[in-house]
């Protein structure tokens, strides 16, 4: 714990997860729970946390999705007084948590199919409404199950404003099936179906979709992006989302050591760099309008982020930067301009 800085930040929203203080350790965003009073500590610091996703599951070492899911669902459990049902799309999270007869889930949990989590959750929510129960409903899936195969059901759930919080754990590809391209795979990234071969190795430019923006276009009550590099912000957003009824969407950037070709110990660093270079904008939107963007604290060039991952190794062959690195930097710059990611943190 060296060089701990303390920054006074204006309150974003008057809810219980909102920290009044932010501590930054040098080089990370990790906030030391031990340095703040008990009331201000994160959900995970509490002995009474629900531990919705218990240890012993089969996720890879350094799995960003396992971390994101644990924080997100624990926060949702606390916000709902443990009165919560989760629906899960097929994918890594489903497989590594539940090979029968074992399960890591400490809440009622249903897996149906790859592409229908949002619709199944709609059904669960309808059942709760008709039974007069206050039980809340979460649907969760990876980016493939959300932005590709599950997109129609997701959009349907949004437009009907069904009372479901959908959480997408975005690791930018089909990792469960062996790292293939999804519509969330960034340009130039190598996957098994966008191999590092040919004149333009990796995923092509000018394709893909950023579902949070599409969610905003549905005018649903709440949309947010989050990152496992800032778990307090993630918890805050989940708690905020749980205080709202109707369709809500949170997309969490969760690095995948296997798919991205990075050491397990770099998961948080990668998540942080993705935010700090501007490639992954962290923002909130309510009823179709962006209301808050998380500022970049210390901007880094995107090449620093790309260089840490083997999926981008072809961009740096022979010690020379591929010209496409500049194109990715341009994407980052466009995000920074669009969401106003530089400057002081304030409501927009």
């Amino acid at each position: 714990m060296t060089d701990v800085q303390m920054t006074d930040v204006p309150a974003l929203a008057p809810d219980e997860a909102q920290q009044k203080l932010k501590f930054y350790q040098k080089g990370t965003f990790t906030v030391g729970n031990r340095l703040i009073s008990e009331g201000e500590r994160s959900v995970q610091a509490s002995q009474a946390r629900s531990n919705a996703l218990t240890s012993g599951h089969r996720a890879c070492q350094g799995c960003g999705e396992a971390l994101g899911a644990r924080y997100a669902i624990d926060a949702a459990m606390r916000a709902s007084g443990n009165d919560l049902i989760a629906v899960n799309a097929t994918g890594c999270l489903e497989v590594f948590t539940t090979p029968y007869p074992e399960t890591s889930w400490q809440l009622p949990w249903l897996h149906s199919l790859f592409g229908n989590a949002a619709a199944v959750a709609t059904g669960v929510a309808a059942a709760m409404r008709v039974k007069g129960k206050k039980t809340r409903v979460i649907a969760q899936g990876g980016d493939g199950g959300t932005t590709d195969i599950g997109f129609q059901c997701l959009s349907g759930m949004f437009e009907r404003n069904d009372d479901v919080l959908y959480i997408c754990y975005d690791n930018e590809g089909y990792m469960n099936t062996g790292v293939q391209r999804s519509s969330a795979t960034p340009p130039a990234a190598r996957t098994a179906t966008t191999p590092a071969l040919g004149p333009e190795p990796g995923n092509v430019f000018g394709t893909g979709k950023f579902v949070p923006k599409i969610a905003v276009a549905h005018n649903i009550p709440y949309v947010a992006t989050a990152t496992v590099a800032d778990l307090h912000d993630l918890e805050r957003k989940v708690v905020k989302a749980m205080a709202i009824h109707g369709a809500r969407y949170i997309q969490i950037n969760v690095p995948c050591p296997l798919g991205w070709g990075a050491p397990s110990c770099d998961t948080i660093k990668l998540a942080r760099f993705a935010v700090e270079c501007g490639l992954y904008p962290i923002f909130e939107a309510e009823h179709g309008r962006v209301t808050h963007a998380r500022k970049i604290r210390k901007q880094i060039p995107v090449r620093e982020y790309l260089k840490l991952q083997k999926r981008y190794a072809h961009l740096f062959r022979g010690g020379v930067d591929d010209p496409r690195v500049a194109r990715i930097q341009a994407i980052c710059d466009a995000h920074i301009a669009e969401y106003g990611l530089l400057g002081d943190d304030e409501e927009v």
């Binding site: 149906s112 592409g115 619709a119 959750a121 709609t122 929510a125 309808a126 129609q152």
Partner: peptide, 19 residues
């Protein structure tokens, strides 16, 4: 719902939740 796939999926969720 927005499709038959969703129609039965919503029914699956509802039925599993006891309706």
């Amino acid at each position: 719902v927005e499709s038959e796939f969703a129609a039965l999926s919503v029914a699956i969720g509802a039925s599993a939740a006891g309706a």
